[in-house]
Amino acid sequence: MTSWLEATARERIAGLLDPGSFTEFVPPEARITSPHLAQLNQPAAFDDGVAVGRGTLEGAPMLIAAQEGAFMGGAVGEVHGAKITGLLERALDERAPVLLLLESGGVRLHEANAGLIAVSEIMRAILALRGAGVPVIVLNGGRVGVFGGMGIATCLCDRLIMSEDARLGLSGPEVIETTMGVEEFDAADRALVWRVTGGKNRAIFGEAVLVPDDIAAFRAAIRLDPVPLDVEAEHALLGARLDRFGAAEDALDIWADLGIETPARLPLLDTDDFLSAIEGKLA
C-alpha cells in the first residue's frame, strides 16, 4: 500500500503511470512561476503548484495533471490554471485521455480574478473534451479535497475516483460556518464534515467511485471508455434527488431512507464492507 493522501503530486504521478514514462511540459526548471505572489510576500513555487505532462498507463498514452495541495492549498492562479487548460486543449488536439489528479481549495485569492477566469477556461476545455468523446478522469484523494470552482469542474468530467478520506464540495465547511453561522454548518464536527463532503456520501449519490487510500487502488479503478453525456437523463436524475433529499437534515437520514441498515455505522466501515453495505441502494 502506498498512501495517496500522504504522497506529493509528483509522487502520485510516479506511482500511477508506467515507471519512467512521465515527461513534463513547462517543467520546474523553466521557472514559469506566478508573477503575482512576490508583491504579497508569498514565495512562488517553480511549477506554480501543478505538474502537467504525458506518460503511459499500462502502455496506453495519456495526458496527466497533478495539483500540489501543500502549496497554497492547490489553489488555482493564472499560471497554474493556464497549465491545466493548455493540457486539456492538447488532449483535444491529440484525442488523448486525461487524468486530473486534483487537490484544490478553489481559486487562489492572491490572484483571485485571474484564478476565477482560469477555472472557467478549464470548465470550457473539459466540456469541449466531453463533446468530442475524449475521456477526462478525476482522481481525488488528497488532504485538501476538491472545492470551489475545481469542485464544479470535477463534476463535468467523465468519472471521479475518490477515497473515503477525500472530500468534494463547493463551499468549504469553514466558509459556510463563517458566513452563515455554526447552526448551518459546524465545521469543527469532523464526522459531520465527512458525512456531507466525504467520499462515501459522494459514492452513495453515484458521483464517485470509492477506492481505498492506495495509489494502486486508484490506478486499478481507472476506466478510459468515455461516458456519453445525456443532459436530459441527468436533469431527471438530479431533479428526483432534489425532490427526495433536498430538505434532508443530515446524510444519515438520506442513507436510512435508501434502506441502508444501521446507517450510523457506514463511516466506520472499510471500503469493501462499505461497498457491500450500499450495494443496490444508491441514490
Binding site: 470548465m123 470550457r124 466540456l127 466531453r130 463533446g131 469542485g151 464544479i152 469542474a153 470535477t154 463534476c155 463535468l156 468534494l168 464540495g169 463547493l170 463551499s171 466558509v175 459556510i176 458566513t179 452563515m180 448551518e184 454548518f185 458525512r195 456531507v196 463532503t197 456520501n201 459522494r202 449519490f205 458521483e207 453525456l229 443532459v231 441527468e234 436533469h235 438530479l238 434527488r241 432534489l242 433529499f245 433536498g246 430538505a247 434532508a248 437534515e249 443530515d250 446524510a251 438520506i254
Partner: peptide, 23 residues
Amino acid sequence: MSRRDETICLNAYIAHLAKCLDH
C-alpha cells in the same frame, strides 16, 4: 452557502447547468 445543498452535491447541480449551456 448551505449544508443541505452541499450534502446532495451542489457542485453537481452547477456543473449540470454548465453542461446544459454547452449542450
